[in-house]
Every structure is written in C-alpha cells, then in structure tokens.
Design a protein around this nucleic acid. Structure first.
Lengths: 339, 339
DNA sequence: TATCGTTAGTAAAGCGCTTTACATGATGAT
DNA sequence: ATCATCATGTAAAGCGCTTTACTAACGATA
C-alpha cells in the first residue's frame, strides 16, 4: 500500500502539502495539483483511514447497536439507518447483541474508544443501571425505539400508548368486550405504554380488565404461544387478544391453531409493529404500523446534528405516530352482533 | 480518556512495560504487576483500538458485506456470522450495499485500507469484472452464497442443483408435468445451477420444458408476481411453479390471489431458502431449506483459518446440503389423479 | 531601497500504541 | 575479584496521517 509520503516523494512535494491538498486546506497552483494527482493515480494511493482517525479523532462513522439483527424489525431499522447515514457520508457499523447486555456494553465502550463518532442504541432489555451509567452525559448517543431511563440523550420513540389505544378501540368497535393483552418484558417502556393505552381504551368503554388477562413476558413467539395457551385453557376465554408485538402475535396464532381454533372466527388478534411478514401470514395480521424508515432516518439526523454541533439541537424526545393497519385477523366476536 | 502513558506514569514504570505487560510479552514481578493493575483501575484505562491497529496492522475484526440487511436471508446469515466471530474474539462490521456495486467496492476497499482483517462477501449481482479484479489473489476473503467468477478465494455455497432437483422431483412425484420455473438474474451462479437441477429432473422424467416457462429476472417479489401473471395469462397454464427464492414465491402467491385462484388447489408452488416467513404464509410454503447457520459459521471458520495461517487451509469450495421442507403449497394437480 | 504581502510551500510534533534493541543492577559461578 | 547470566525493565523508532507554526522567494508598494 502506498502511503502519503510515497505520493509526496513521487510528486516532489512534502507530505504536508499532499495532506493539506487532499483535505482542501491549501491552495496550490495547477501544476502542483496535477503532479500530486498523477502520483496518486500512479501509486493507486488511498488514505489509511485508521491513521486519519487516530490523528483527527474523527471517524466519520457511527455505530448502530441492536438486540438482534435477524429480527425483521431491527433489520429494517438498520437498513433505514444505513441509507440515511451513507447519504450524509458516514459509515455505519451494525452490531447485534443477541440480548446480552455485555455486548451492548462492549459496543458502548468501543464507541468511547473513539472507534466511531456516535451511537444509535436500540435495546429490548430493562436496564439495571449499568448502561445508564455508561451513557450518562454523552453528547453522541441517540436512543431509538426503547428507553434507558435516566439518560439525557435525544430519544426517538413511537406513540406506543396511542397505538395500543387505537388497537383496543378497533377491537371494541368490532364488538369485543373480553380482551386480553400479551406483552413484552415488564417495566420496559414500550410495554408499560402499550399497556396504558390498552387500559385507557378499556376504561373509557367501561370494560373491565380481567385479572390474569394481562400477560407480560417477552417479545417472543414462545411467550405469545405460552400466554395464549394459558388464556385458552382458562374457563372464560377472551374473544380478542392484543399482542404487543407481531412476534408475539405469531405465537398467538400458533397456539390458537394448536387448539384447533381459528383466527378471526374464534379469536380476534391485533399485533404491533407491522413487520414485513404481517401481511403475509394467514390470516393477514391487523396491526399497528411503526414508521420504521422514518425512525431510522430521524435517528441519524439527530445524531449527526449532535456530532456536528448544529443548531437546532435535536429535541430531547420525539414521538412518531403509528397507524392502525386493518387486515383480516379481526372480526366481530361470535356470540355478539355488531351494534 | 487515559492513555498508556498515563498508566505508566501512575504506576511509575515506562509505557513499554505497561504495553508489554498487557500483551503478555514480559514477565514482571508481582509488585509491579499490582501497581500497573491499580493504575489501570484507577484511571479506568482502556486501550485505544485505533492506535493498536495502526501499530500492529491487525484489526481483530472482519467485515460482512451483504446486498440487503433487511432481507431475512441475509439478516439470518449476518446473525450467524456475528455469533461465530464473537466466539473467536473478532468484531464484525456489517454493511449492506443495497444492490449498489459501488458500495460493495467501497467495502472491499475499506478492508484493503486495513480497516478489518478480512471479508466475507455475499452478493446477488452478476459481476462485471470490477469486483473480481479487486479481489484477485487476496488471502483474506471468503465468498459466501454466491460466486464471483474468476476469484480464487475459498467459497461456500449450497447444493443449488440438488436442491431444485429435489424440488422438481417433489412436484413430479405429486403428479405435475406442467411445471414452470421463475428465477433470479440470468448468469448468477445460483440461478444457473437451480435451473440445471430443474432441467435434469424434468429430463429424467421425460417431461418437456415449455418455451416461455423459464422466466429469469430478479430475486424479488415483483418479478415473481410479474412472471406469474404472464404464465397465468397464457393459454396453457402450468400446474406448478418452482420459484428460485422464497421472495419470488411470495410474489407468485400475490399474483395467484389477484387472479382469484388459490394455492395449492389451482397451482402448486415450491420456493427456495426457507426464510423465516415461509412457514407463516398461507398456505405454508414448501421450500428448499438452506443451512443458514452453518453457512455463516463455516464462512467465519474459513476466513479465520486464512487470517491466522492455520493448517488445514480451507478447501477452495464447499457445498452445503439443502433439504426439502414439505408444507402446504404443493398438492396434486386438479385434472390428474396421483398415479 | 526597505518593507510588506502573497504565494507556495515545509519541518516537526503529535495521535496512542507496539516492538526491537539495549541497559542496569543483582546474583551466582569460577 | 571477575565474569557471565538473569531479572527487570527502558529508550526510541515507527505505524500513516494531520496540523500548527513557520519560511523562502517574489513582486508590489511607499
């Protein structure tokens, strides 16, 4: 690999001149420029980014930390982040933590080690304080999708409460009164909020939330299936389930089929996320769409604003709207007519 | 951030001593070790990876280049690669090229710039020679899933030919004779091979491949739908379609529904890949499963063997077996009884 | 002619680490 | 007492780049 000095020697100037020329920090006469350009071409020179980073302290790269890149929701988020970052001339390093807090901590460290300029962090685990401590007062982090309480960095979330409110209303409007909720990890912001929206809609409609009909656990198919089995095995079954994620909804569908029942005839189902597969499953899943592309785009925009010290500074918290996508997994309950 | 020199000063030794101690390149008496350890703890020192890399020329990181991280097939591949690489102490940088050859070239360059030690490359575009030229004679690249002809690096592919042979046989065994194939980009290795397996099975069974019934295009839903419409609009329709990817199969399903027909009653369908959604769509998709986890694992193993100059060197080409997963998208053709 | 301002650069330090080659003092053998 | 050896380190160069501060040469101006 040719180095800057090689180029300088070839062009008959000092390395300084070449460096400054390449960074537009000097005006050179055409003749000199031509000689340098020729030398670069001849030697096939490309700057060593590592050296440049070490020297400048800037990486022109950001890192996206995600729980699981094989999860379509995060994969799509990643694609959106990449698109926007590349547009702004930044490279993106994606790492997926497989649910291990250690990996998340590693990624945060790596950033602190000036590996990248900033970090977009998505998580799906409740913080025990470690990550909050690591992130506190950093000027180069944006939290996306899920909160880590006690960290004062820009945050981008969706209207979780409004989303599950709309989902619940949709079920109620269809005539359902016996509605259960299957959610993710307790104390996780999205879960708390989605539960709140559910509760508000139920209360407004004068409907009770039955004891044992709010089953929090994990954002997984397995939890969805297990919780559904519990619900279906109990003496009084719900006529509808609000799943706090499409993954959970998938598990619900599985368990329902295993019992020989079918959606939406025997049970109505609403998901959350609108992952790509939601319209492909049978029956197509009614769900709450998160604006994944916009979330990724905005996260990058905010992060770069932070990094480049622009005005206006990003707001401390932004909520993106969600949207009810009505498909085929919801129908009126069997034993009740639509009003 | 504390530096090595800070630690050395704090511990009352030279930076050399600290560096060598941290890299196990020196034996120090317990007392000195303790002082250094204490200094590191006190200053919360962590080595600057950039500096280390610049100095050693080793990055302890590899890069995975993928056409589209939002594609579940590549997302799962990425997850597998990450898992294995982390196990071996390497970081993984994923970049997705969004189908742009430029981005692929960038990624290759970045590696050459000693950003990472090696590269696992997956592609889905036919090479025009540029990438082959860039990769020629590199000792730190592994090709995964799809070939770039003329590059002599280790390659990991699946048994494409055997896969679509099995798929076609499965259709023939069910009584189908009128089978069409919808494939990806012409001249892409996987497409050529899958077409070959299809042809072999048809020939063996004495079945003709009708003109116009092999529709190559893209590994996309859109192509699947468009090709299917053409097939369904023609006077003589196939009774079964072999789609060269699950994405294509999705498009087939869409087009079939649009015509008011249904799978498998009116048309049988086999996909390729067994992406996560394959068992979730309606009807559940019969498809050829690729061993994604094993592919990712092996790619990392081969790459690290290359990097660390181990024996045995990885074989030039490895083929992983695929497996027919029979689900509900295949049934006997309407007008024919099963023999 | 002395001064000033430009133009066209350059020397050298520094980013934080590794590594090679060498140094110092204590110990043991002769 | 002397020499070799070992244990315990250290000095300094170098990875490839940026950047600050400086300068040589030249023409224009007072």
């Amino acid at each position: 690999m040719a180095t800057l000095s090689d180029v300088a020697a070839e062009a008959g100037v000092s390395p300084t001149a070449v460096s400054r020329y390449l960074n537009n920090r000097i005006e050179l006469p055409q003749a000199t420029r031509d000689r340098i350009d020729a030398a670069i071409a001849k030697l096939d020179y490309r700057p060593n980014l590592l050296a440049r980073r070490l020297s400048t302290g800037k990486a022109e790269a950001i890192s996206l930390v995600t729980p699981d890149i094989a999860n379509p929701f995060f994969a799509e988020l990643a694609a959106a982040v990449e698109r926007q970052a590349h547009e702004r001339g930044y490279a993106v390093y994606i790492s997926s933590t497989q649910g291990h807090a250690d990996n998340e901590i590693d990624a945060i460290r790596r950033m602190a080690d000036s590996h990248v300029d900033g970090l977009i962090l998505t998580t799906n685990r409740v913080d025990d304080g470690t990550r909050a401590a690591l992130l506190a007062d950093r000027g180069n982090v944006v939290l996306l999708d899920e909160d880590i309480p006690g960290v004062s960095v820009p945050r981008i979330f969706v209207e979780n409460e409004a989303g599950s409110y709309a989902a619940t209303r949709h079920l109620i409007d269809m005539g359902h009164a016996d509605i259960a909720l299957i959610g993710g990890p307790p104390r996780l912001m999205s879960v708390t909020e989605r539960l709140a929206g559910f509760s508000r809609a139920m209360e407004e409609a004068g409907l009770p939330i039955r004891p044992g009909w709010v089953l929090l656990g994990d954002y997984t198919r397995e939890h969805g299936a297990a919780a559904t089995s519990i619900l279906l095995d109990s003496p009084s079954r719900p006529t509808a389930i609000l799943a706090c994620s499409d993954y959970i909804a998938l598990g619900v569908g599985q368990a329902v089929r295993r019992q020989g029942l079918s959606i939406p005839e025997d049970l109505s189902l609403v998901g959350f996320d609108d992952m790509a597969f939601a319209e492909l499953v049978h029956p197509a899943l009614t769900t709450i769409r998160q604006p994944v592309g916009e979330m990724g785009r905005l996260a990058v925009t905010y992060l770069l604003a932070l990094l480049e010290g622009q005005t206006p500074a990003p707001p401390p918290e932004t909520r993106l709207p969600v949207e009810l996508i009505a498909r085929q997994s919801v129908a009126p309950p069997r034993h009740k007519a639509i009003s």
